[in-house]
C-alpha cells in the first residue's frame, strides 16, 4: 500500500508554479527523505499532503484518503517548518488544546515525553527555545498516534545531541507503531541515518523516488581518466561528471564498473548531490507500479 500517491499535482502562487505535474508514490512503512533545492516545492508538497493547502491541479491521496478529509486528518500528523504553535499559550494549555482537537490522543505519551524534557511547565510556549518548541511540536504530533507523519525540516533548530535523541525516538515509534514518515531536510547526513526511501524534488517536479537501498545498489561512483569521460556516457547512464585535472569523478547509474574505471559504492550524500546538480536526470518508478 502507498501512504502517499500524487498524480499531476500542481500548486501555483500567482504566476509561479511551486509544484508542477508532480507524480509521486511512497510505499507504507518507510522513512522517506524529501530533499531538494530551496524553492524546489518541498514545503508546498508537504502542506498539500497535510491538507493545509488545496492544490491548484492534479490529485493527491494520503493513506488512500484525500488530504484534508476527516479520515486523513485523523491519520496524518504534520509539523511545519514554521513550528506552528500558539506562542501566547502556556505549555499546559497548548497540550490541553491539542488534546481537545483530537479524537485519538495519547496523554501518557505526551506527558511522559514532555516531562522527560522538562517542558511540562506553566511557562509560555513563546518563552521556550526554538529547539524546545520543535520538541513540543513533535511530541504533540506523535501523541495523536498518526499512521503518517509529515515533518518539514523539524530538526533545524535542535542542537546535535537533541537531533540524535529525536531521531532515535522517531525510529522507535516507526519500529513499534509501524509509522510511516516523510522527512524534509537539508542536512543529508541526518537523513542518511534514518531514511529508507528517497524523494528528490527539483524545480517543482519529482526527480527521484525510490528506496535508498535500490538507489545505492544501482549507482556507483566511478573514477577514471578525464579523457574517457565522454565515451563513458555511451556505456552507462551518467548522472554527473566532475573533472579534476586528468581524473574524472562520475556518478553513474550502473551496478558494474566499465573497463578502465575504478568503482566504489556511493553514499547517500553523493547520490543526492549528484541528482541535485543534474535536474534533468530522473529515477522514477514505472507508472503502472505507481498506480
Amino acid at each position: 500500500m502507498n501512504v502517499i500517491q500524487t498524480d499531476g499535482l500542481g500548486q501555483r502562487y500567482r504566476q509561479t508554479w511551486a509544484l508542477r505535474d508532480c507524480r509521486l508514490t511512497v510505499p507504507a512503512g518507510h522513512v522517506a527523505a524529501l530533499v531538494g533545492h530551496n524553492g524546489a516545492g518541498k514545503t508546498t508538497l508537504l502542506r498539500i499532503l497535510a491538507g493545509v493547502v488545496t492544490p491548484t491541479a492534479g490529485t493527491a491521496t494520503v493513506l488512500g484518503y484525500t488530504p484534508g478529509s476527516q479520515q486523513a486528518r485523523d491519520a496524518v500528523s504534520a509539523v511545519d517548518q514554521t513550528v506552528p504553535l500558539y506562542r501566547h499559550l502556556r505549555v499546559r494549555d497548548q497540550v490541553a488544546a491539542a488534546r481537545e482537537l483530537n479524537d485519538q490522543w495519547d496523554t501518557d505519551l505526551a506527558v511522559q515525553r514532555l516531562s522527560s524534557l522538562n517542558l511540562m511547565t506553566s511557562g509560555k510556549v513563546g518563552k521556550l527555545s526554538g529547539g524546545q518548541q520543535a520538541q513540543l511540536a513533535l511530541t504533540l504530533a506523535l501523541a495523536r498516534r498518526p499512521r503518517l507523519l509529515l515533518l518539514d525540516e523539524p530538526l533545524a533548530s535542535l542542537d546535535p545531541l537533541a537531533r540524535q535523541e529525536v531521531l532515535g525516538w522517531l525510529m522507535t515509534c516507526v519500529a513499534e507503531d509501524g509509522l510511516s514518515v516523510v522527512f524534509s531536510s537539508h542536512v543529508i547526513t541526518e537523513l542518511e541515518r534514518v531514511a529508507t526511501y528517497l524523494v528528490v524534488l527539483s524545480q517543482g517536479q519529482v526527480q527521484v523516488a525510490a528506496t535508498v537501498d535500490s538507489l545505492l545498489d544501482s549507482h556507483l561512483a566511478l573514477t577514471g581518466p578525464a579523457a574517457d569521460a565522454g565515451q563513458l556516457a555511451g556505456q552507462v547512464p551518467v548522472i554527473t561528471a566532475q573533472r579534476t585535472g586528468r581524473q574524472a569523478q562520475v556518478l553513474a547509474r550502473t551496478d558494474t564498473a566499465p573497463p578502465g574505471w575504478a568503482a566504489r559504492p556511493v553514499t547517500m550524500e553523493e547520490l543526492v548531490l549528484g541528482y541535485l546538480r543534474e535536474p534533468a536526470a530522473r529515477v522514477l518508478p514505472p507508472l503502472e507500479a505507481a498506480r
Binding site: 476527516q70 486528518r73 514554521t82 482537537l101 483530537n102
Partner: peptide, 14 residues
C-alpha cells in the same frame, strides 16, 4: 498572521 492555523488545521478538525 501568526501561522497558528497550521497547527489547528493539522489536528482532527476541519
Amino acid at each position: 498572521e501568526g501561522g497558528g492555523f497550521r497547527f489547528t488545521w493539522t489536528q482532527s478538525v476541519s
